[in-house]
């Protein structure tokens, strides 16, 4: 049995019984790598009363699911999760272990890597296979100005975290059930901080990473008043509003709307960037978008190098008319 489970692993992250989107995205990538290498994909699912999520994982590319269902794993706690992950790694000896670069993954992955004394690369934007089944992990460095490829030749598993929104989930196919329950063996004491309270609010806009259209504004928008134009345009498409750093600093936009190195990575079908200069810190978060339209009054704006269609104009002249035009077309 373990022969089938020493290939590519994906940590299936759930909170409150809800699977994080990034887990399905990672399964999509894992499936692709596994098919190329002739290996199997295993999803690791930890929690309590979460067995029903296994089918979702199978349908999205996992060949099998290892489920650790235990009341002590119900709410995420670092020490028990890290212990269980490390003991699974010791038992099954996987080649590759992928995790989301989420709040949970960013904390858990390094702890697991240190426990099993292997390498880990952070915030990968691409994963490829190299010689002898090596996982080549592509990471941005220096604010995104350079791209480094990292390998972990002599230690296993080869571990990587990937930002949400970068890999593509596969569409679901009904697949056969290979779910294996694992024994959870945890001590009574020494499990680290206890969780007193978990509070989550429903985000009021579609998460940036999931939006089909992202309309992003920069410092060039100039005021809270004009920022509303960005929001109206996004709303017309049922899309989300993104921002560069300055609008967040000014308070026109929320921290969670920032796109770029220190913010989100988006790859929508359409990205419209308005009043954005195109500094690398921002561009690395949007350059994988399918179509990119930008509006900037400066003919030499750097953002144009990353654009399919460019408009050199004051956005105040263009955007209100564009909103009217789109509205008119939608009514038809």
């Amino acid at each position: 049995m373990s022969g089938d489970m020493n290939g590519i692993w994906v940590f299936a992250e759930q909170r409150g019984g809800e699977l994080h989107e990034v887990s399905l995205e990672l399964l999509g990538k894992a499936r692709e790598l596994a098919d190329e290498a002739g290996k199997k994909v295993t999803a690791i699912l930890l929690g309590h009363d979460i067995r029903s999520l296994s089918q979702l994982l199978l349908n999205h590319g996992a060949d099998s699911v290892l489920v650790g269902d235990d009341p002590r794993l119900k709410t995420y706690r670092l020490i028990p999760y890290a212990r269980v992950m490390a003991s699974l790694v010791h038992t099954y000896d996987p080649e590759i272990l992928l995790m989301g670069a989420t709040y949970m993954g960013v904390e858990l992955a390094p702890r697991v890597a240190a426990k099993v004394r292997t390498g880990l690369s952070a915030h990968c934007i691409d994963l490829r296979l190299g010689e002898k089944g090596q996982l080549l992990q592509v990471v941005p460095g220096w604010g995104g100005g350079v791209i480094a490829t990292i390998a972990c030749p002599d230690h296993r598993p080869q571990m990587a975290t990937v930002m949400p929104g970068i890999m593509k989930a596969l569409s679901a196919i009904e697949r056969e059930d290979t779910v294996k329950e694992i024994e959870i063996d945890l001590p009574e004491k020494g499990l680290g901080p206890e969780v007193l309270e978990v509070k989550r609010e429903k985000p009021d806009q579609l998460p940036l990473e999931k939006a089909e259209v992202v309309v992003a504004g920069g410092w060039g928008i100039g005021s809270q008043e004009d920022w509303k134009m960005i929001e109206s345009l996004a709303e017309l498409f049922g899309g989300s509003v993104g921002a560069t750093r300055p609008p967040v600093d000014e308070g026109w936009a929320e921290e969670g709307q920032m796109i770029g190195q220190s913010g989100k990575t988006v790859r929508p079908k359409l990205y419209i960037g308005i009043g954005i200069s195109g500094v690398m810190h921002h561009v690395v978060g949007m350059d994988q978008s399918e179509h990119i339209i930008t509006i900037n009054s400066d003919p030499d704006a750097e953002i144009f190098d990353t654009s399919d269609v460019i408009v050199v104009e004051d956005f105040r002249k263009v955007v209100p008319k564009l909103i009217d035009e789109i509205r008119a077309r939608l009514k038809k």
């Binding site: 004394r117 292997t118 390498g119 880990l120 690369s121 190299g130 080549l136 941005p140 460095g141 995104g144 100005g145 350079v146 791209i147 480094a148 490829t149 990292i150 390998a151 972990c152 030749p153 002599d154 230690h155 690398m280 561009v283 690395v284 350059d287 190098d305 990353t306």
Partner: peptide
Amino acid sequence: PTKMAGIELRRF
């Protein structure tokens, strides 16, 4: 455990 396998300036 991790080794640099290559580095390049990013081009757009």
